[in-house]
Design a binder for these strands. Structure first.
Lengths: 138, 138
DNA sequence: GTAATTGCTCTAGTCGCTAGAGGTTCAAGG
DNA sequence: CCTTGAACCTCTAGCGACTAGAGCAATTAC
């Protein structure tokens, strides 16, 4: 049996975050000692590791809730799980595309300024003032 | 003179967001009609457009506050402006790198699942359970 | 003159935590 | 057995950048 602190060390998830996950329903309500402290077993640890890994991959709490529900029905089709993961992949790719557009624009803007002029004529400042100076759309 | 709604239409910034920006000090306190409604002039519009453009490029409210302060001193060196923009560029590039790592991992995980099996043996699910199955770090 | 639209302030909610206050329980050492 | 100190408990509030809604006032168009 692990205390919440031990679970935290084993999983790399901070103590308040574990309580938060319980509160949000990702973790079942933990067993308690007579004094009211949470105690966990190996199942709790592996579930928490699953959650952490999914969070690290950018899944939302809601998506993880869905995945965990699937996990509790091991004999159903895994198509739903794949769908959730593919949705997440799509979102990540979209974000990368958006950020790449920003990167190009920021690089262009900062390149246009050598840092030696005054704010009034600064290419960074005028670019921000006038969207028409932008190359792509963002 | 624009009403807040007209300013919103001209700038593409929602009405409550404009009020929020005023509250946060990005926009000066607007002039008011006798009845207490906000009125804006062309200056207000261009300032708001500056803010929107910067937000679209991912600058934080704090960074924008800095840029706006620079804008009010047009004869000072533009190096500070360039620094703020370069910091933002660095952050964007970092985020892209992180997301790219996630993308690779998600693609690998979803590729390993053809959607025909059951949750129990699903590569998506086992990958999430066991971090050791991961290729890179994330 | 009246009705529809737009405006006002204020509070609370979003997401995924994080920080702190103020109090209780546990485990180890004497 | 008793004390000490670390770890635990609950609860509330805060982060960033908005967004939503209630309940009411002003403006505008006909």
């Amino acid at each position: 049996m692990y205390s919440i602190g031990a679970l935290s060390r084993q999983s790399g998830v901070k103590v308040p975050t574990i309580r938060y996950y319980e509160d949000r329903g990702l973790l079942p309500e933990a067993e308690r000692t007579a004094g009211g402290q949470r105690r966990y077993n190996a199942d709790g640890l592996s579930r928490l590791r699953f959650i952490k890994h999914a969070r690290d991959l950018g899944f939302s709490i809601e998506a993880i809730t869905g995945l965990l529900q699937l996990q509790e029905h091991p004999d159903t089709s895994c198509q739903s799980a794949q769908t959730i993961a593919l949705d997440q992949l799509t979102e990540v790719r979209l974000k990368i595309a958006q950020l790449s557009a920003l990167e190009r624009e920021l690089a262009r803007i900062t390149d246009g300024c050598n840092g030696t002029g005054t704010t009034k004529n600064c290419y960074v400042m005028t670019s921000l003032s006038d969207h028409d100076l932008c190359a792509g759309d963002h």
